[in-house]
Each structure stands twice: as structure tokens, then as C-alpha cells.
């Protein structure tokens, strides 16, 4: 799978994003890492140009409630409804339902194993095979 791993907004720490990028690569995926401090519009552009199937958004700064929905919205506006959005970082439990409602399909917090993220990605492949929706602009009624 082609996956964009992105750091939206102003937070300056990407150790986590890099570990995830590496783990996804070792899981056989092609990972495009964006580097730090990207705007939601830039991330949408990168997903389009790279023809990525999924985008993982890493957020540690507390701005996830603003930035992640903007990426989701941008993808829908660009007609990228079938792209899967997942998130990771410091995202408190009580903020997650809103992100799921925005079309985010998984939120991975501290302590998540890289194996779990790979399991999530293979679940996506299973669902795609079964014709079940997973994209940010699709009615999936499902999240990890």
C-alpha cells in the first residue's frame, strides 16, 4: 500500500512519525514521509500527487482537533473520498469520537505496537477486498 505519513501543524517532534514510517516500510508498504510542519492543504496535495491509498497523521501538539478534521475535509473537497485517514500521537480518549465522526478510521496512542498498526492496514485490505468502505468520504460505519 502507498501511505503518506504526515506531520500537520507546528509541532517539532517527529521521532514517533519516523518510527511508524520505518515500521510500515518493514511491513512491506511504500511510505512517503512529508517532514515537519505541513499545512492541511499541503498534505492533501501530497496525497494526490503520490496517489496514496492512506494517510497517517501524527500529532503531539494538541492541535489534532483542528488540523486533522481539516485534512479530512480537504481530501473530501478534492474528491479523494476513498483515501483512508488514520492518526497517532497524543490524542486524548475524549477527543477521539469527533475524529471518528470526521472519517478518521483509527487513532493510535502511546504504547501502541507497530504490529497493531500493520494489523489495521491489513484489515483495510481485507475490507477493500470485501467491498466494504474505509475512505474518509465514505459511509463506513466502522473504525479500528
Amino acid at each position: 500500500m502507498r501511505i503518506v505519513v504526515a506531520k500537520p501543524g507546528l509541532d517539532g517532534h517527529d521521532r514517533g512519525a519516523k518510527v511508524i514510517a520505518r515500521a510500515l516500510r518493514d511491513g512491506g508498504h511504500e511510505v512517503i514521509y512529508t517532514g515537519l510542519r505541513r499545512t492541511p492543504a499541503e498534505i492533501v496535495r501530497i496525497v494526490i500527487d503520490e496517489d496514496a491509498a492512506a494517510v497517517g497523521l501524527s500529532s503531539l501538539s494538541g492541535a489534532h482537533g483542528v488540523l486533522i478534521p481539516r485534512v479530512c475535509e480537504g481530501l473530501r473537497e478534492a474528491g479523494m473520498d476513498d483515501v483512508v485517514v488514520f492518526a497517532g500521537g497524543i490524542i486524548p480518549e475524549h477527543d477521539r469520537p469527533r475524529l471518528f465522526a470526521e472519517g478518521v478510521r483509527a487513532v493510535f496512542g502511546p504504547g501502541t505496537t507497530t504490529g497493531e498498526i500493520l494489523d489495521f492496514l491489513s484489515k483495510l485490505e481485507d475490507r477493500a477486498e470485501a467491498g466494504e468502505a474505509t475512505g474518509v468520504g465514505e459511509e463506513a460505519g466502522w473504525h479500528w
Binding site: 514510517a21 516500510r25 512491506g28 511510505v31 512517503i32 512529508t34 499545512t39 503520490e50
Partner: peptide, 28 residues
């Protein structure tokens, strides 16, 4: 990666001005 078949594509992080202009297209 010869082992997993995956790849880590990071070139575009060094071309960060590339993602805001319609005159630029970058594919890893």
C-alpha cells in the same frame, strides 16, 4: 527494501516549497 519490499520515500521532505504551487508535481 529487498527484504520486506516496502520503501521509505523521504525526498520530498527536502522540497517543502514544492507542495503549494500548481506549477510543481512531485512523485516518489
Amino acid at each position: 527494501s529487498p527484504r520486506s519490499g516496502g520503501a521509505l520515500l523521504g525526498d520530498r521532505m527536502r522540497m517543502s516549497n514544492a507542495d503549494s504551487s500548481d506549477l510543481v508535481f512531485v512523485r516518489s
